[in-house]
Each structure stands twice: as structure tokens, then as C-alpha cells.
Design a protein around this nucleic acid. Structure first.
Lengths: 178, 178
DNA sequence: GCCCGTGTTCAAAAAGGATTGAACTTTCCG
DNA sequence: CGGAAAGTTCAATCCTTTTTGAACACGGGC
């Protein structure tokens, strides 16, 4: 597989082994780039942005072999990435009769995407810290001086207020993103 | 500075060189831990969480030497971290007459904090991608088949709608967080 | 001028994540 | 029962970010 005809070498420009899937065109690359950038903003690895981006701009459901070749990504990375996105609810499995491969379509309802994201990211943090807050209140009581004690109580109380605010804001956000 | 009396050695437990500032107590550690966790959620380095957390729970403005010793952080890290947080608007410089050191207090208005964060993180991405969207529309026009062309136009249009939605949502968020 | 306190810079080291690739499992089909 | 196709797993590797530490700048005060 290392001896393409001169014509092939010129036409199928990309210098990697030939395969069954077309290389990305300009438009696909552009869309994927935007999702990579978005993934970056959200602190997700680049590969997740690529995977979702490809799914988003693909008229047909995508599958492992396709993304490996078109995104030039290892099978391991693609497999894990697809699973992560499925667990996140960003990619939905699509059953195709008579085909053993696992196909995926993107979830495109922004409300669902954001909801899952918040549940996955923010919830755990909120839960952890709201649990810790009570203990902190007690710690503050054993402060060195009365002034410091009062200051700490205020600050910790404010922390609680922030959390409550955020907690009440999340459902509201869900409703807004309809 | 390496020969404390036996009593000192036992009382000032922590096994690092003695200094001018008290080690963190339980309460301070707990609060800082929460901000470290929050920094993690937001994708900021741990040290930024520590710095802001210490500032938040400190009745007095903090300064470089103090954070180095109390957080066991190198001068370089602390210096850069303080600057980053100042640039982000999360820490405010405090001038103290007759003292050459740079003191900082935390910004505690959540509206300001969130505003700066969005401006810093989301804006650049939104600007970049809204610029790219136009070009993508054109790319889509040169699609292979009419079906694909239509599909791509729809998807890219939806991308634009998402962005617009987010853009209009940000000012609203600002008003909600009052 | 010289020294000391304060803070910055930046090359190098360390740490932490992401990616790879090869071995492995499972399932289907002949 | 093979064997091929599809997917998973995970230790090793790679890469990016963070942190360190030492050298450097700056600014008074003596």
C-alpha cells in the first residue's frame, strides 16, 4: 500500500495511506474547527470537538472506522472519545439493521446539551461543596479572635449564598434554553 | 534559621522552614479547597484557586511573601498567579501608604466575576466563530450534491442561531446576577 | 554608590492529560 | 471450529500546561 500511481499521488493529496472514506473538505474542516474551539472553551480535549464536529456536519451517522480515517485519529482515541460523547449525551447511538457497526448521530438540542454538561460538571462540584459548607461553619466558630470569627462567618455565609444562587439558576437556564 | 528549640520544633509542626506567617488552619484550608475545586470546574489551574481562596478568607489584603509561605508556592508561581487574577479582575490591588508591597483584595461581586470571565473566555470564541460562519456558508454552497448542500446550509445556519442565542443571553445573565 | 526588599521573567523541570498502538474480547458468519 | 470485523482496554508515549528557582530589574534608604 505504498506505491500509488503518480496520478493517485497527485489527486488524493493527503500523504497518508489510502482508505475507504473521503478526506475532509473545506467546509467540514471549518465546522470541525469551530467545535474544536468550542471544546477548548469548555475545557474538553480537542478530539471530542473533532468527533462531535464531524458528527454535526455529517448527513449520515458516523462510525468508528470512518472517524479514525477521516479525522486521522487512532482507534483507541476514537473509541474512547465516542463513548465519552455518548455518555455525555452529545452523541446518540443509531441502530442500523444488519450492520454490526455502532453509528452515532449528534444531539442537536442545545437545551439537552447544556443540561447534560451542567449535570456532569457543575452538579458534582455543587454537591461536594454544599456538603463541606456545614463543616466550615463550625471551623469558623473556633477562630482565633472574635473579629476574625465574624469575618469568616460572613464570608462562608456568602459562599453558601453563591451556591444557592447558582443552584436556583440552573433550572431557570434550562427553561430559557427552549 | 535551621536550629529551632525542641519546643519550637514540636509546636510549629509543619516540616518546612519557619517563617513569618501562620500556617493555614482547618477553616482556611477548607475554604481554599472549595475554590480550588471551583477553579477546576472552570478549567483554571489549581494555584489560581488557592490564591483567590486565600484572599477570600483573609480579613486583611494578601501580598506576595505571605502567599508564598502560607500556600507553599514558589515566588514565580505566586507572582504570575496574582497578576493573572488581577488582570482577570478577580483580585483588586490595595494601596497601603508607606508599604512598598503589593496588596490584593478579592472582588466578591459575583456579577463582576462572571462578567469578566465571560468577556475573557467566551467573547473571543464567539467573535472568532461568528467571523468564520460567513465563509462557511460559502463553502457549503460548493457541496457535492444538492442534498448535502441543503443539509450543510441548515446545519451551519443552526450554528449561527446558537451563537446568536448565546450572544443575546449573556447580557441577560449579567442582569440576573445582580 | 551600595545594599536590601520587592517583584518580574524565563528557561528548565515536573506534572498532568491526551493519544497511540498493540493485544485482547466479542460477535457473526461460513 | 476458524477467521474476520468491530470495538475495548490499558500501559507506554507524547505533548501541553504548570511550577519552580535562580537571575534579573527596580526603587528607595543609608
Amino acid at each position: 500500500m505504498d506505491s500509488p500511481t503518480p496520478t493517485e499521488a497527485l489527486l488524493s493529496a493527503p500523504p497518508f495511506e489510502a482508505g475507504d472514506f473521503a478526506p475532509l473538505d473545506e467546509c467540514e474542516r471549518g465546522v470541525i474547527e469551530m467545535f474544536v474551539s468550542a471544546a477548548d472553551v469548555l475545557g474538553f480535549p480537542r478530539s471530542l470537538g473533532e468527533l462531535y464536529g464531524l458528527a454535526y456536519i455529517s448527513p449520515q451517522p458516523i462510525h468508528l472506522a470512518e472517524v479514525c480515517e477521516r479525522l486521522q485519529m487512532s482507534k483507541g482515541s476514537a473509541s474512547q472519545g465516542l463513548r465519552t460523547l455518548r455518555d455525555l449525551g452529545a452523541l446518540k447511538p443509531v441502530y442500523i439493521a444488519g450492520d454490526r457497526r455502532d453509528f452515532f448521530q449528534p444531539e442537536i438540542k442545545i437545551r439537552v446539551l447544556v443540561g447534560r454538561l451542567l449535570a456532569e460538571r457543575l452538579r458534582p462540584h455543587l454537591d461536594r461543596s454544599s456538603g463541606a459548607l456545614g463543616a466550615l461553619q463550625n471551623e469558623a466558630d473556633s477562630a482565633v479572635s472574635p473579629q476574625v470569627k465574624k469575618f469568616r462567618q460572613e464570608r462562608i455565609e456568602m459562599l453558601g449564598a453563591w451556591q444557592k444562587r447558582i443552584s436556583t439558576f440552573l433550572p431557570l437556564l434550562q427553561r430559557i434554553l427552549r
